[in-house]
Amino acid sequence: MIPPANNRSALAKPIGISLLSLFLLASCASPGPPRPPSLHLPEIVSDLAAERQGDEVRLHWTTPAKTTDGLTITGTMTAQICRATPTTPIVSTVRHPEVCTPVGRVPAKAGPSEATDLLPPALANGPGELIEYRLELRNRNERSAGLSAPAFVAAGPAPPAVTGLHVVATEQGALLQWEPKDAADSIELTRLHAATLAKPAAGAKQPLQSAPKEPAEVHLRASKVNSADSLFRPDAGGTLDATAHRGETYGYTAERIRNVVIDGHSLQVRSAPSTSIKVIMRDTFPPKPPVGLETIVGSSASAPSIDLSWRPNTEQDLAGYLVYRRELGADGQVVGASVRLTATPIQEPGFSDTTIVAGHTYSYSVTAIDTLGNESRPSASAQEQVRLP
């Protein structure tokens, strides 16, 4: 029996709701197996580096900002430093694949990090063997994802420290000298730029032009000051830093460097750094006088002039040139005082004097001036006579 139309409509509503519910249930994606809770283990350090300097080993690395499951690290971390040698190797067991005895612990936070390990006398003064360092990052629950890859340094005596280091500002640069040693160790100088320490005193000359931007730190390998120095003696007791700019202030330290090879590893052993010294490269050195000054009377009869030219100077701190004129009498003697024709330094090696008077004879000279106002001696003079029309 077919139910009436109104009954059919009433039956259709619950059936439609049931189908919709089934569709929604079927369309919900399965969440999959539940994920275990995070152990908040910091990622393993991947860029550990070690450098031997005197009896200390300086360690550098980047502390990760994420855990092994990709979460941002929260809370405190500790970097545990492990040191191993042939007599105290890293131990591997079934439960702990790599375990080494810690020699230090430092707080760690995400970003560039560093620590220092003072070697015991047995390693600092003993035989030249390989020292291996590993780093283990631990969370606040003292849990770790494991040890970093190794970084190596050499045991054994370090080169002697550089003594007697001193520096003098010269026209060619900063001349550094120290007490030489008869050894094959090379010398490395570290130069720090300290312009803020060289604020000019009241009344001091100000640069006419800005100096080039200086790097904060520069490393220089010492080269021989004198070409006659022995080829078999890298430590000649001095070197010239020709890259030091006048008007700047620098601090210098020096280290001896010894290259060694242990178990296939090429390593450097550095001495402890020398005492730091400072030099203010006061620019009291004028440029060289211009050369090749020539004069010629201008070609215009209505506007007489004398044109000057000379060879350009090559100093890096050159600000320009100043032109001077003297008038000569009929007997060739100077009449009156010298007159400066250029109020400010001119950049080009040439000048046109349009203030002359026909029938007079003039003598010209040119000086070069640097960015701090140091002026050279005058060039050789050149004379020119302007004939009457």
Rank of each mutant, 00 (worst) to 15 (best):
S148K: 04
A151G: 02
A151W: 03
F152N: 07
V153C: 10
A155E: 04
G156N: 05
P157N: 11
P157A: 11
A158P: 01
A158C: 00
A158N: 04
P159E: 02
P160G: 12
P160K: 10
P160Y: 02
G164W: 06
L165Y: 03
V168L: 13
A169I: 02
G173F: 08
A174L: 09
A174R: 04
L175R: 14
L176N: 03
L176C: 05
E179Q: 15
P180W: 07
K181N: 06
D182V: 13
A183K: 10
A184N: 07
A184D: 05
D185W: 03
D185K: 00
S186F: 03
I187H: 04
E188P: 00
L189N: 01
L189I: 04
L189S: 00
T190A: 12
T190D: 04
L192H: 03
H193Q: 11
A195W: 09
A195K: 12
T196Y: 14
T196N: 15
L197Y: 13
A198N: 14
A198V: 05
K199P: 04
P200G: 12
P200V: 05
A202L: 12
A202G: 13
G203I: 05
A204G: 03
K205T: 09
P207R: 08
L208R: 11
Q209K: 15
S210A: 09
A211Y: 12
A211Q: 12
P212R: 08
P212L: 12
K213S: 11
A216R: 11
A216I: 08
E217G: 01
V218Q: 13
V218I: 11
V218A: 06
H219P: 03
L220G: 04
L220R: 00
S223D: 13
K224I: 05
V225I: 15
N226A: 09
N226G: 02
A228T: 12
A228H: 05
P234R: 06
D235R: 05
D235Q: 05
D235C: 06
A236T: 05
G238S: 07
G238L: 04
T239L: 00
L240T: 07
L240P: 08
D241F: 07
D241N: 10
A242S: 14
A242E: 15
T243W: 09
A244S: 14
H245Q: 15
R246F: 06
G247I: 06
G247D: 07
G247T: 06
E248G: 01
T249G: 00
T249F: 02
Y252G: 00
Y252T: 09
Y252Q: 03
T253I: 09
T253C: 10
T253Q: 12
T253S: 10
T253G: 04
A254G: 09
A254H: 02
E255N: 09
R256V: 06
I257W: 02
I257F: 02
R258C: 05
R258L: 02
N259H: 13
V260E: 00
V261S: 13
I262Q: 13
